[in-house]
Simulated scan of single mutants.
Amino acid sequence: MREDDHVYLSLAQEQDDSRWAFGTGFQDPLHGVDTTVPDGVDPAGLAALCLGLGDDALIASQRLAEWCTRAPELEEEVALANIGLDLLGQARMLLTRVGQVDGTGRTEDDLAYQRETEEFRNVRLVELPNGDFAFSMARLLVFSAHRLAVFERLAAGHPDPVLRAVAAKGVKELTYHRQYAAEWVVRLGDGTDESHRRMQEGLDTIAPYVDELLRATPSGQDVRDEVGAVLAQVAEAATLTVPEFERMDGEGRAGVHTPCLAPLLFEMQSVARALPGARW
Rank of each mutant, 00 (worst) to 15 (best):
L111K: 12
G23H: 06
A48H: 09
A134T: 02
F120M: 04
D102K: 13
T175P: 01
V162D: 07
R139W: 02
Y8Q: 11
T192W: 07
A57M: 13
V142D: 04
T107D: 11
M137V: 12
A254L: 13
H257M: 10
L58R: 14
M93W: 07
D16R: 05
T205A: 15
A60E: 08
A21Y: 12
D193R: 13
R139M: 04
T175Q: 06
Y8E: 09
A79W: 08
A71M: 01
G99V: 00
W280T: 11
L213Y: 02
P43F: 07
L163P: 00
D204N: 15
E226L: 07
L51D: 11
Q269A: 11
L141T: 14
D102W: 05
R139Y: 02
L85Y: 12
A60G: 08
V242Y: 02
A81P: 07
F266W: 12
A79Q: 08
N130C: 02
E226N: 07
A254G: 07
L53D: 14
H6F: 03
W67A: 11
A44M: 06
D55S: 00
A48F: 00
V33Q: 04
E119M: 03
E201K: 01
D225T: 13
A181V: 12
L9V: 01
S219N: 08
Q114S: 05
T258E: 11
G52V: 14
R164K: 13
L148V: 06
L154Q: 14
L95S: 05
R63P: 07
P276W: 13
D211Y: 06
F22T: 13
L174M: 01
R279W: 15
E3C: 02
P208D: 14
G250N: 06
L125Q: 02
I206Q: 03
K172Q: 02
A48I: 02
D110T: 00
P259N: 10
G255C: 06
D102I: 05
T96H: 14
P276A: 06
